[in-house]
């Protein structure tokens, strides 16, 4: 054990005042201390991307950041994607295109795709494919995830 530190994590516009050891990763804090279990842990070494969240708008592997490093930062997780009962276009697209099966990797894919598209709405198709190779899925074979993200990207960009 090392000494716990008080920090504030702002997750989906809500402040969580918690105390954590410095060694606690951001994903563990989000899940264990803030009760937001929609973000999943798949490998804890930065390969699988299941724990992807947005920190100050940027997609990051939350297993590769310590919670104390996110003190005061704005964090978005899958629980904050929908606007009330209105699902985010990315969530809808994953349902429409069967972009998930067991659903374990899904929150990471959703946050990855939303984070990148919000920052780079005009990202090329090739670059978008490259981005999606960041995360692992073992169920879908990716084809439907790619379809879903492309469809949501078109919707997020809106009519031209």
């Amino acid at each position: 054990m090392s000494k716990k530190q008080p920090i504030t994590l702002n997750i989906n516009n809500r402040d969580h005042k918690i105390e954590v050891e410095p060694r606690k990763t951001l994903v563990d804090a989000i899940r264990d201390d803030c009760g937001q279990t929609g973000t999943h842990i798949g490998c804890e070494h930065g390969i699988c991307g299941a724990c992807t969240v947005l920190v100050d708008g940027e997609p990051v592997r939350s297993c590769l950041m310590f919670a104390v490093q996110a003190d005061g930062k704005t964090i978005r997780t899958v629980e904050g994607l929908a606007n009330g009962d209105e699902l985010h276009p990315m969530q809808k697209a994953f349902m429409d295109h069967h972009g998930l099966q067991c659903g374990f990797c899904t929150p990471g894919f959703l946050m990855l795709a939303v984070g990148v598209l919000e920052r780079e709405p005009d990202i090329s198709d090739e670059d978008l494919l490259d981005v999606l190779s960041s995360n692992l899925c073992r169920c879908t074979g990716y084809q439907n995830i790619i379809k879903a993200v492309r469809a949501a990207a078109a919707e997020m960009r809106g009519p031209r």
Binding site: Q36, G38, T77, M95, G103
Partner: peptide, 8 residues
């Protein structure tokens, strides 16, 4: 799906 895409 609705449960799984919303992190629930």
């Amino acid at each position: 799906d609705p449960t799984l895409v919303t992190g629930q």
